[in-house]
Design a protein around this nucleic acid. Structure first.
Length: 319
DNA sequence: CATTCGTCCTGATAGC
DNA sequence: TGCTATCAGGACGAAT
């Protein structure tokens, strides 16, 4: 279940292996993994073969590789990239660097062969058990505000068209809290729904939403149009905190040959304070000498974990 | 227009 | 043992 920190771990790992290399061949082993590429597998492969990878860029949970269709020419400025290979990991997607000798993974969906590079694996593989993720090609278009479209080694004021509709994420230096708060207040919905809405703030999934709400001592159903500025700032800072902590913990294996979403990064269950802790004590309450048991509720066809004491459900006219 | 809901998927696990 | 039911959830298009 990769959320922003896991995708960023992949980005940082991947960029060292693929930047500057040319895609020499593409195998689409399961067309369902490119279903967002409307023109089909032949078009997908045909456009990728011969393209050079310029960078790896991320906004929220979207990751893309800007491409150049010409070889690098010494002494000449590279033209601005116009197309990118987009990746979304969905629920179970992985991007793995592998040597050709390594047997295909059980759920290998797409294989990219790369131009040889000393000491580097030849293949970039997309492995995805549940097929919620996928790869596809997308145009790169200018950002509205002229700032970088996402986090990159060489930031450009371009955004993958298919990611242009999502908001900046809380770790983006150009994220605007004022804009976020203004749009949050204008909504007629609950706080967790809003946090999960990638068009309002990107990168937050079910796990970090619960963690951020717990840290901020706010209930998931709190009506967004009643939030004070200080409360909105609290939950946003909490989201930054939990994601930064996860990133720091997941960043220890960047030098591994194996860029593995679920293995090399992933969640650190011992550090989770809310998600998956139904029936266990609330750590914050316990530290204060209060007995409180974390509970799980059905929410949006998934789960919401809260402490009934320090995250009380809002009641009409009183919060 | 804004918001919410149903759908896509597979494998681990629980229950009979 | 072997079957079926349930659950997990990101993002998008349909429905409200």
């Amino acid at each position: 279940m990769p959320e922003l920190p896991e995708v960023e771990v992949v980005r940082r790992g991947l960029v060292n292996w693929v930047r500057g290399r040319t895609i020499t061949a593409v195998d689409v082993l399961d067309p369902r993994s490119i279903r967002r590429h409307a023109l089909g597998a032949e078009d997908f492969a045909g456009n990728l073969e011969g393209a050079r990878v310029l960078d790896v860029v991320r906004r929220g949970k979207f990751l893309w590789l800007p491409l150049a269709d010409t070889p690098a020419e010494p002494g000449r400025a590279a033209p601005a990239p116009a197309v990118a290979l987009m990746a979304h990991l969905g629920m179970s997607g992985q991007l793995l660097m592998q040597d050709a000798a390594v047997a295909d993974e059980k759920h290998l969906k797409i294989r990219l062969r790369l131009s040889p590079a000393a000491g580097m694996p030849e293949q970039l593989r997309f492995v995805d058990q549940r097929i919620f993720g996928g790869l596809f090609l997308t145009a790169l278009i200018p950002t509205l505000d002229g700032h970088a479209g996402g986090l990159a080694e060489t930031p450009l004021p371009l955004i993958a068209e298919e990611a242009a509709h999502i908001a900046r994420d809380p770790l983006d230096p150009h994220f605007s809290f004022d804009l976020f708060f203004q749009r949050l207040r204008a909504r007629k919905t609950g706080l967790k729904r809003a946090l999960l809405d990638q068009a309002l703030v990107s990168g937050i999934g079910n796990i970090y939403a619960d963690e951020a709400l717990w840290l901020a001592k706010l209930h998931y159903a709190r009506p967004t149009d009643t939030l004070r500025r200080s409360e909105a700032l609290r939950v946003l800072d909490a989201a930054r905190q939990v994601m930064t902590d996860a990133l720091a913990a997941g960043g220890t294996s960047f030098d591994s040959l194996y860029v593995n979403v679920n293995g090399a990064s992933g969640y650190f269950e011992r550090s989770l304070n809310a998600y998956g802790r139904a029936g266990q004590e609330c750590r914050r309450c316990a530290a204060a000498g209060i007995v409180s048991v974390m509970k799980r509720e059905q929410f949006m066809n998934r789960s919401a974990y809260t402490c009934p004491v320090c995250q009380p459900r809002p009641r009409n006219g009183r919060w």
